[in-house]
Simulated scan of single mutants.
Amino acid sequence: MADRVTMGDVARRAGVSTKTVSNVLRGAPGASAATRQRVLEAVAALDYRLNPSASALRSGRRGSITLAIPTLQQPLYAALAEELMRAADDTAVILELTSGEAEREQEILAGSWARRSDAAVLVPRGLDPASWPIAERAQLKAPLAIIADSGPPDVPRVTCPPEAQVELVAAHLLTLGRRRIAVVGSSSRADRWTEACARGLRAAGLRVDTEAVVRVDAPDGLLGGVEAVARLMHVGTGVDAIVCHNDALAAGAVSALRRRGARVPQDVAVVGRGDTESAVFATPT
């Protein structure tokens, strides 16, 4: 078996230093057009292939981004992964599924991904990022961003403020003539949306009873919506609209309501969150 061609072999054939070869292959400025041509001809002649692992060791960069999400069963998370991969272009995206477990999310916040990636994006569900100790954040050198409704002020965060969403929802429900509303969200410590939604709807003049605020342990799938409807029916809230934390919960709620003979949206209106493809093509949308 022939020995693997090295950058030194390319340098000797082109009559330049290995540093010059590295600069040319990285696209760095400085080499003349003639020198670049000799290097590229040597690369082609020797069929030289860059060793990504060795390159990462030299540069300190891994060429990848870690995306830590609870699950891929939630369409919103799958859509997020696709958009990040598209935006990253040639940069690899490593998916890490946390299952919404606080311990695994804590590991991400502490930088467990830094050994394999240059940056990370975390969508927390089991852990409240606002409680992340400042001392631990100070030790993390590589860039980390979170997608959450709340978080430490010194960590980059992407969010859509719940208050802005609730204003739209409240106006829509008032237009429909709905008055008694249920809110379905997550039982996670990281969830700030559910209470903010209930508070905002009440401020808009809608009735949201305490027993009509339902937090489920499985907020990423249809079963959570089915569970929420069962609990609402059990306590007899008599709501005429249900506002859900995401589209998957909304789809489960619609299915459960129909099985119980309720008409959607005539008897009970259901609002989702996320604008996923499944919601756009659902009936009703």
Rank of each mutant, 00 (worst) to 15 (best):
P70K: 03
E82A: 06
A110M: 12
M85W: 12
D149P: 01
S112R: 15
S99V: 08
A120H: 08
W113N: 07
V93T: 12
D154L: 13
P153V: 09
P70M: 01
G126N: 03
G151N: 04
A88P: 09
K141W: 05
Q139C: 07
I147T: 07
I134A: 02
W113F: 07
L109N: 10
R116N: 05
S150C: 01
A135P: 11
E105I: 15
V121N: 04
A81V: 12
R137E: 12
V155K: 08
L122P: 15
A142P: 07
E103G: 14
P124R: 06
L84W: 09
L109F: 15
P156C: 02
G111C: 05
T66W: 00
L140C: 12
E82N: 05
M85S: 14
A138P: 14
A68M: 01
T98E: 00
I147N: 02
L140F: 04
P129C: 09
S64N: 05
G111M: 06
L122M: 13
R104F: 03
P143F: 07
A145Y: 12
W113V: 05
L84T: 09
D89W: 08
L76S: 02
E96Q: 01
L144S: 10
S150G: 02
L72A: 05
E101Q: 10
A114D: 07
R125Y: 07
L95N: 12
D89Y: 05
D128T: 02
A87E: 06
L97W: 08
D154A: 12
T98Y: 02
E105L: 08
A79E: 15
P70V: 05
A138M: 07
L95C: 13
I94H: 01
E83D: 05
Q106F: 12
P129H: 04
V123F: 15
P129S: 06
P153L: 03
L127R: 09
V93C: 09
L84C: 07
A88V: 10
R137M: 12
W113K: 05
A92L: 13
G100Q: 09
Q139P: 13
W132T: 06
P143W: 10
A68N: 02
Q106V: 15
P70Q: 01
S112C: 11
E83V: 04
P133H: 03
I147D: 06
E82Y: 06
W113H: 04
